[in-house]
Amino acid sequence: MAMVDVDAVSKRFGRTPVLDAVSMRVGPGVTGMLGPNGAGKTTLLRIMATVLAPDSGTVRFGDRSPTSADALHAIRRDLGYAPQEPGFYPDFTVFEFIDYVAILKELDDRRARHDEVRRVIGLVGLDEVAHRPIRKLSGGMRRRTAVAQALLGSPSVLLLDEPTAGLDPEQRLRFRSLLSERGDDRAVVLATHQTEDVTALCQHVVVIDHGSVRFDGSPPALAEAARGRVWVSDGPEPGAVLTWIDGTGRHRHIGDPPSGATLVDPTLEDGYLLLMGRDSRGERAA
């Protein structure tokens, strides 16, 4: 079922709209769901993980829709989900935690289950702390523990909420390698606000802001959206949407360049920032 179709999904919490008719299609490969904090990424991921029901709209997993108990059960069997805050029993060791999740995933045979638990612990490189209580782990190790449980049973759909938060550069590299190996024949959705992760990993990117899809396409297309809108100078530019000083000490600007500006090739981050900056400007103007 390595395909998830989200169609016109809306969700409110009380009077607060969180998602507004969101539609997207996730196929095999790694999809980055990019957006600022509070954009609605986590809510959408929870709906895709069948934890939360939409107020309106539908989510289909391949040819299945979670409208009957049997279909829901089949969908959940083939789904790996790592929430932003998985919630740990602090006294559980890494092995015990993942083993418990494996039981929730109906891996009832103990020997086979333990083999699978050891496999996913090895995948995220936590072998040496497998028997350490989770309360004694660093934030990065906890994130890896959360990702490990999502990999149990090699699900076709993998939903990961901010999986690289708290990881050091080496761990992040390892994580990217792990995901890129798994993105060939399964649908991986990565909710993040880190453009580097999307650049490094994703074949597809969906930008969400204020509960709506702002962009849906390939990472190069998002970068291209800023072509001709990114320039560098030696000083600040009051007309730019965004300005910052880059690693070379020069000012990098996004917006409408003045004549004669030194245009540079845009990155995915430029495209994303232009999209976000333009939206926030529009909001201020309104």
Partner: peptide, 8 residues
């Protein structure tokens, strides 16, 4: 959260 997303 994980219990809700699990098939059991």
């Amino acid at each position: 959260e994980l219990v809700r997303a699990a098939p059991l």
